[in-house]
Design a binder for these strands. Structure first.
Length: 562
DNA sequence: CACCCCCGCGCG
DNA sequence: AAAGCGCGCGGGGGTG
């Protein structure tokens, strides 16, 4: 049973029951927005439907704020992103349908807004109103596209995982990562000195600027300007081509050490300093926007606060509340394990059965050198053509012919302008309008550029199949964790404070999750995370002989994990 | 003033 | 040590 939810205007939502093919069952009806949460909660309890809507965050955020958690949904816009390019889809009508809806937009855009502009009203205003019938038709077209596709089960799983991920993302933003302002301010002061006036450099950075100006004999140097810095370095005989840290490290000039220190502090100050705290931490929680499927490979992206780049240096401030703990679980070496499973390469699958895949590969063919094995394998998945990884490739190819063939075939397809797909059927978008003309060019100079473009696209498609399938595994893992946590009992004496239950799934970073929960619930959470990982492997690959081991830490603050 | 690109660096 | 993939963000510096 499906329940379709379509915003009608500023204060109403239309609902309709649909059958398994998206056909109307009975008459649609309408509810005022203020009545919606209670009505939805009742329908969820009585009918346990799959909720169908265009964009999860448009409606679900408000439901969460009203205290309603939902078990499952179908996010039409996420499904559209997958289905419009998927090479598994054969329905000739669907691509046209998707194009009509999306117009020329290539990828989903976040509805993120600046935090101070965020409306905390119950419902965010939808960007455009489509009628219930239009939305229903698109949903029905999606169901048909899946059922008539070359692999309905895979696409069904992918769309279910994406929709579950959309629920998780909304819940994560609703809950937020617990963030201790005081600890954060402490570590800022420790590193940078007292909070400066707005627009001013912190004291310890200013001290370094004074030293740099003396050491480089440049009394007006602004080290934040790469151009200016580069000229100044050259005047002092420091012959670097860029001002990147790794290149600066090659010089032993006395100004280098304070310069690197300045860059480190500057990064902390501008990216996660006091301004960041004021902008992003409310009521002790960090609530960024997560954009499910925001990356072309299917990974999540985020908007605001640099949510997926929280540097190690500030992780101490992500802290569990008193009596609670953080569970940080990290799936080890996911991409090579995915490659082993996808390619059914027996040798690599054997290596992927242990805790440390790189060590197994090292023993199997690299004289026990784990670092060589790792460099070789990463090079194979990223398309490295130079240096040590290129030198090690022949050996890797001999050891794991099927695995290497899979990524090389993906690269060749991409170089030709073709599409490649993940295990569950997310495909690369076509290369863009200029591709064909560029590849047909006559001039030698343009031909060189076209070849470079083709090689770059080959590296992209090579990595796409692995990164994208890893993202699918991770979303299945996430969905499994979500449903298991929902079944956990409240600890004795605890009240149901949150619609998402006693354990809070608060963070997700490609192959890592964080749960914030009462300490006594942690054993149950660890079991949930581990059994969900096993289930994710089985969902994708059946009884594949590949393990997806986790590193699990139960800690008080994020920095204590790993 | 807004807008865009480049640079550099944080994360996986 | 980075390299080879995928991102977001803030500052500088140019343009309109």
């Amino acid at each position: 049973m499906h329940l379709l939810l379509v915003p009608a205007d500023d204060d109403a939502v239309r609902l309709a029951r649909l059958d398994a093919h998206g056909v109307l069952l009975g008459e649609p009806w309408q509810l005022g927005r203020e009545d919606l949460p209670a009505a939805v909660a009742g329908l969820e309890r009585d009918e346990a439907p799959r909720w169908v809507w265009d964009t999860t965050s448009d409606l679900y955020s408000a439901l969460l704020q009203a205290g309603t958690r939902l078990a499952r949904c179908h996010d039409i816009s996420l499904a559209r992103t997958v289905l419009r390019f998927s090479t598994l889809v054969q329905d000739p009508d669907y691509a046209r349908f998707a194009l009509d809806v999306t117009g020329s937009a290539e990828y989903p855009v976040s509805d993120a807004v600046e935090p101070e502009q965020r409306q905390e009203s119950l419902f965010e205003a939808p960007r455009s109103h489509r009628s219930l019938e239009e939305v229903r038709q698109e949903f029905a077209a999606q169901l048909k596209a899946v059922e008539t596709s070359r692999a309905p089960a895979r696409l069904r799983l992918l769309l279910a995982a994406e929709s579950a991920a959309a629920l998780v993302a909304a819940e994560m933003r609703f809950l937020g990562v617990p963030w201790d302002q005081a600890v954060h301010r402490e570590l800022l002061e420790e590193a940078l000195g007292p909070e400066p006036a707005p627009g001013r450099r912190p004291a310890l950075m200013e001290d370094l600027v004074v030293r740099l100006r003396e050491l480089l004999r440049a009394p007006r140097l602004n080290p934040d300007s790469p151009q200016e810095l580069l000229k100044t370095l050259h005047r002092n005989g420091i012959e670097v081509k860029t001002t990147r840290q790794w290149e600066l490290k090659s010089s032993d000039h006395p100004a280098i050490e304070p310069l690197l220190e300045y860059k480190k502090l500057s990064r902390l100050h501008t990216a996660n300093g006091w301004t960041w705290l004021d902008a992003w931490i409310r009521d002790g929680r960090f609530r960024p926007d997560y954009v499910v499927g925001g990356v072309v490979t299917g990974r999540w992206s985020s908007r605001g606060g640099g949510a997926l780049q929280i540097p190690r240096s500030v992780r101490r401030a992500a802290r569990a509340l008193p009596g609670w703990k953080l569970l940080v679980a990290d799936a080890s070496q996911v991409e090579p394990r995915i490659l082993a499973a996808m390619s059914a390469d027996e040798g690599m699958a054997r290596a992927a059965r242990g805790q440390d895949l790189y060590a197994e590969i090292a023993d199997a063919g690299f004289g026990g050198s784990r670092s060589s094995a790792k460099i070789a394998l990463l090079g194979a998945m990223y398309g490295s053509t130079t240096g040590e990884s290129a030198r090690l490739m022949p050996q890797l190819k001999k050891l794991y012919p099927r695995a290497i063939a899979l990524v090389e075939e993906a690269a060749r397809t991409g170089e030709r302008g073709g599409a490649v797909s993940t295990w569950l059927g997310r495909s690369t978008p076509p290369p863009g309008p200029d591709w064909d003309a560029a590849q047909r060019t006559q001039s030698q100079e343009e031909q060189r550029r076209a070849d470079a473009w083709a090689r770059a696209r080959g590296r992209f498609t090579r990595n796409f199949v692995v990164q994208g399938t890893a993202a699918e595994w991770a979303e299945c893992w996430l969905a499994g964790i979500r449903s298991r946590l929902a079944g956990l009992p409240l600890p004795d004496g605890a009240e149901a404070a949150s619609p998402t239950g006693p354990a809070e799934l608060v963070f997700f970073l490609h192959d890592e999750i964080m749960i914030h929960a009462p300490e006594e619930l942690m054993p149950r959470c660890v079991e949930a995370v581990e059994s969900a990982a096993r289930e994710a492997g089985t969902l994708l690959f059946g009884r594949a002989p590949v393990d997806f081991p986790l590193t699990v830490a139960v800690v008080d603050s994020y920095d204590q994990a790993k």
